[in-house]
Design a protein around this nucleic acid. Structure first.
Lengths: 283, 283
DNA sequence: CTAAAAAATTCCATTATCCGGAACACAATT
DNA sequence: AATTGTGTTCCGGATAATGGAATTTTTTAG
């Protein structure tokens, strides 16, 4: 299987980000000048299931040979891309260095951290924090029940929003027009037999989530994994995220999910509150 | 039209990387064209101890207002930088997404992983894998003794090579001329009272390390932390890295470090061998 | 081992793109 | 209202990116 190629294209961060209000409705500007071309290359290399050679990148990109070669060379020079001895390319180490800082300095994450920890202690299960970026959820933090699994395996991962608890919770906090816009960009793919596979199903599910204030994921993304999630957002919706308690199906029964609902909601509310207070326009 | 001399300046990754041979001793080339300027901005934001505003970045960079503003806007648009509501900038989420892939797909790391795990099981202590990048060591992987500390806190971190076990081990594997070049770029800073603070001291230490085939860090970087490390490298030195076993001073006594030496050296040798075999020019 | 094909890299005239000084908004401060 | 500091936009000009084609290197085939 092969993740749908279509990336969101545009940058959503925390600030201006989440609801891109005054955006020209062009959904197809393929690259903001030179930098855009460079990032497009990184995207191609990142999305590939195996290390790519020059010509492979050439075929996947729309840049002419000469141009592409120079752009790649620049990326290598900057340490964002690496040319290995076997003539294949890898994402560069410098990205790790940047990401390390991006993570540890991220204010939103720092604010949420104590609440995550508490939620983990209360439930004893794995807790995730994810933030909405276009139509995907990017996992920002995680507290694991059993630490046998490695952390990096999840943080920074981007999953489709429509089939994860955190993603659906976050979507439910978007204003209607913005939500519709994003749903329009989605590309529904069936991962399991409970996966939501149409805009209609998703909208129905979201209205239920809005009413109940919590979202479930009953093996919609990965078989054997279930969770409850709740939305996090600040007053002007410039930050839209979610938090979840996850467990293996045999432990995360309907009853258990019901039990976790209150603590998850409370943690989410607490984070929303703190974020509203500490990341206000003027501080 | 002479061979080589191809890629220049800086890019150190895995491939051609590690010994960048024919380079002018430029110390601070502030930007390879447009991309270089963009990365320079990311660097400034990453290095800052607190979130920066536009004017602060302006003062720290050598780009004129108009130029800087446009470059920053492009970065924000690409999701590599985030403009928050309080007018400060943060590194963007997209860096996390890229780094997640960069880490999980990194061939060198994947090859080393089983050896790291084994070393951790044998010693019962924390094990680090770091790769040399210029004058710094970037930590690529880590197996912790007690999993209470979070992983991300170390992976992707870049530390000066001269004051860490992994760094010194790696440096010891460089050819003399390349080593001299890099030492010339170093900026010695005293972290503790055992920190190496001059090129002479470092060279002396490195010759000892080369003889013994292992490097110590006796609280040179951080008080209370000691380790033994061994170098990893492939035949042509295009990959230069190190592996270490680390512990708190009270446990990592001289005797303990001596005990760990053999397993560390063996793990390093095994990784070097595997890397030589699997990342050969022709595969 | 040699020949042929494919892939990777370099070249260079053209022009699109980026540059950057300066003017313009927009706050916050007095 | 005046002032200062900060962020954003403009636009002619120069630089740096472009991309087609030639060259070199690597790989495959004979």
């Amino acid at each position: 299987m092969f993740g749908s190629a279509a990336f969101g294209k545009r940058g959503f961060g925390l600030g201006e980000a989440a609801l891109s209000s005054t955006e020209k409705p062009d959904l197809h500007d393929a690259g903001t000048g030179t930098l855009g071309k460079a990032v497009a290359i990184l995207d191609i290399v990142a999305a590939a299931p195996h290390p790519l050679r020059f010509t492979e990148i050439l075929n996947l990109s729309d840049q002419p040979r000469g141009t592409l070669h120079r752009n790649i060379s620049n990326l290598v020079q900057e340490g964002l891309l690496t040319l290995k001895r076997d003539h294949t390319y890898e994402l560069g180490l410098r990205l790790l260095v940047f990401a390390s800082r991006a993570w540890s300095a991220n204010e939103f994450r720092v604010i949420a951290e104590p609440h995550l920890r508490r939620l983990h202690e209360v439930t004893g299960e794995t807790v995730h924090l994810g933030i909405l970026r276009g139509t995907e959820v990017v996992y920002l933090d995680k507290f694991e029940s059993r630490q046998t699994v490695r952390m990096y395996s999840q943080i920074g991962n981007a999953s489709p929003a429509y089939c994860t608890g955190v993603g659906k919770a976050a979507l439910s906090a978007l204003p209607q027009d913005e939500l519709d816009r994003r749903i329009g960009l989605m590309d529904f793919h069936r991962f399991t037999d409970t996966t939501i596979t149409s805009a209609e199903m998703l909208k129905l599910e979201l209205s239920r989530i809005r009413q109940e204030g919590r979202a479930f994921d009953r093996e919609e993304h990965e078989a054997g994994i279930r969770c409850v999630a709740a939305p996090i957002f600040n007053p002007d919706r410039s930050i839209v995220a979610g938090i979840s308690v996850t467990g293996p199906a045999f432990r995360a029964t309907d009853a258990a999910l019901e039990d976790w609902t209150r603590p998850v909601r409370e943690a989410a509310a607490a984070i929303s509150r703190d974020v509203g207070a500490r990341l206000a326009p003027r501080s």
